[in-house]
Write a protein that binds this DNA or RNA. Structure first.
Lengths: 208, 208
DNA sequence: CGTATGATCAAACGATCGTTTGAACACGTT
DNA sequence: AACGTGTTCAAACGATCGTTTGATCATACG
């Protein structure tokens, strides 16, 4: 067996999914294009040919996952709002569950680590990109939280959403103490995680 | 004015405090020893002469701050436990406030970003180092949480502590939405942050 | 004064990085 | 068969990295 982590799909797809794995494992700087292309089983020059540069490859890794994630988030949100009996749990579920389900398919969980790493890197270019392309999603959820928590001042609400975001990012990036027990199936573990996150977020958002 | 960020103290001290700034700003890989020594106003070879290697320098940057931080945490904890009327707020205060006060002195806030970055990097060497040297602090706090929250199962408690840790790390690393308003003094902002964090953590830990 | 000792210096080392180049290849169209 | 287009390839480019070297400086001791 050749030392390839990936040998299916087109060259572009192999680079993308291999990049996701290696960026999560070693970081953006830590994963070199030589390691990446070797693991993907493609030529070194293929990255610059198909993506233009390493930085544009990173952007594509983000775009591929986040487009799907935020589309599903907005879809789930649209299904729970507009009625009189919308609960905080419903909105949080629409926010959290798509992210957890993303961890379901191959390498999806690794992408969450990529995302957490990107947050920690404080890269302004990346933050602009995130705000530019997906800021409207966060804005829509924030508006819904504000409607469901009218007793909170705007600064107070922003504080709490920020802390919830920290907890979610931390949990989804998977570097906490909690690991899946060997006897628990992936599906069950996902459901347990969702339950913990939502209950925790409800308590943190709505306490007096 | 020469392009030095730092020109006081011994060579070793100048390297340490300059490293703290640059690691927070550009990451461990991103900050090169040439940038670092130039900013510190010392010779390139000084790092390897005084610390042995870049990795050992990183370890010293951590050790200098974490020794003080965890000593103050344990000191604060010892002052609130042992009595019958110890509250969850007391223990959380002992955990959170030393970290926030660390952000008070020069570059202390930057160190929190270094710490958050280190968490995100998933570096096993670093995690071993943290667990080896400061694990007993976390264990002591966890034991106290368990005593104050006897209704929670052990897995449930670990889950909640994990999520609280995520919120704290996120908030202290300062990459959230919340920024200090220009009219608010540093001291006031610190107190507000502590209040938000503690109330949020209490709600998240103790909800039914 | 002479001489150890520790600190600082400019310069170079080998390694690895992202990127570029130009030839070779595959293959549908004329 | 000849050509054009898009892709893959080995090889090299210049830049930068962490580290090492050997000379030079400062200073305290016999």
């Amino acid at each position: 067996m050749a030392p390839h982590l990936n040998n299916v799909g087109t060259t572009k797809e192999r680079i993308l999914s291999t990049a996701e794995v290696l960026f999560a494992r070693r970081g953006f700087d830590g994963a070199s294009l030589r390691q990446l292309t070797a693991a993907a089983g493609v030529n070194l020059a293929a990255v610059n040919y198909h993506f233009g540069s390493k930085e544009k490859l990173i952007e594509q890794v983000f775009r591929r996952r986040l487009d799907a994630l935020n589309a599903r988030r907005l879809d789930a949100l649209s299904k729970v709002i507009g009625t009189d009996d919308t609960t905080l749990e419903d909105v949080l579920d629409a926010y959290i569950r798509p992210a957890l389900e993303l961890s379901h398919d191959d390498n999806g969980a690794l992408f969450m680590r990529v995302l957490a790493r990107a947050f920690a890197e404080h890269d302004d270019t990346l933050r602009h990109f995130l705000s530019e392309n997906y800021g409207h999603v966060m804005r829509q959820f924030t508006a819904e939280f504000a409607r469901l928590l009218p007793q909170l001042s705007k600064p107070e609400l922003y504080w709490r959403i920020d802390l919830v975001t920290g907890a979610l990012t931390h949990a989804m990036s998977g570097f906490g103490m909690i690991q899946r027990k060997s006897g628990v199936s992936e599906t069950v573990h996902l459901e347990q995680t969702a339950q913990h996150l939502i209950r925790f977020a409800v308590a943190g958002l709505s306490h007096p």
